[in-house]
């Protein structure tokens, strides 16, 4: 069973690294708030299934970074649906 990781910390916060280290291959990572800055970071390699909240991406002008990183944007309704269908959730 996969885990849904919800990360809202900026890449310069220690919890950002802690979260990435805890994500395993079939887990899903959702970046919100300042965590979306991780999409632009040269020092970060994001997991295969990474998503970023659209409104936070737009706020920080990171649309190009999303495309380059291989992550996908989701809206808040999709995020809510995802949390409803996932049994295990970790909020970082």
């Amino acid at each position: 069973m996969y885990t849904l990781h919800l990360l809202n910390k900026s890449p310069d916060h220690p919890r950002f690294e802690a979260c990435l280290a805890a994500v395993s291959a079939d887990d899903v990572l959702v970046l919100t708030e300042n965590a979306v800055l991780g999409l632009a970071c040269v020092n970060e390699t994001l997991p295969l299934k990474s998503y970023a909240l659209e409104s936070d991406v737009k706020a920080r002008a990171l649309q190009d970074a999303v495309a380059a990183s291989g992550a996908k944007t989701i809206d808040s309704a999709t995020l809510v649906a995802l949390t409803e269908t996932t049994h295990r959730i970790m909020s970082w």
Partner: peptide, 10 residues
Amino acid sequence: LRHGQLPEDI
């Protein structure tokens, strides 16, 4: 300093 920020939705 990043150009193109649109934080209205947040």
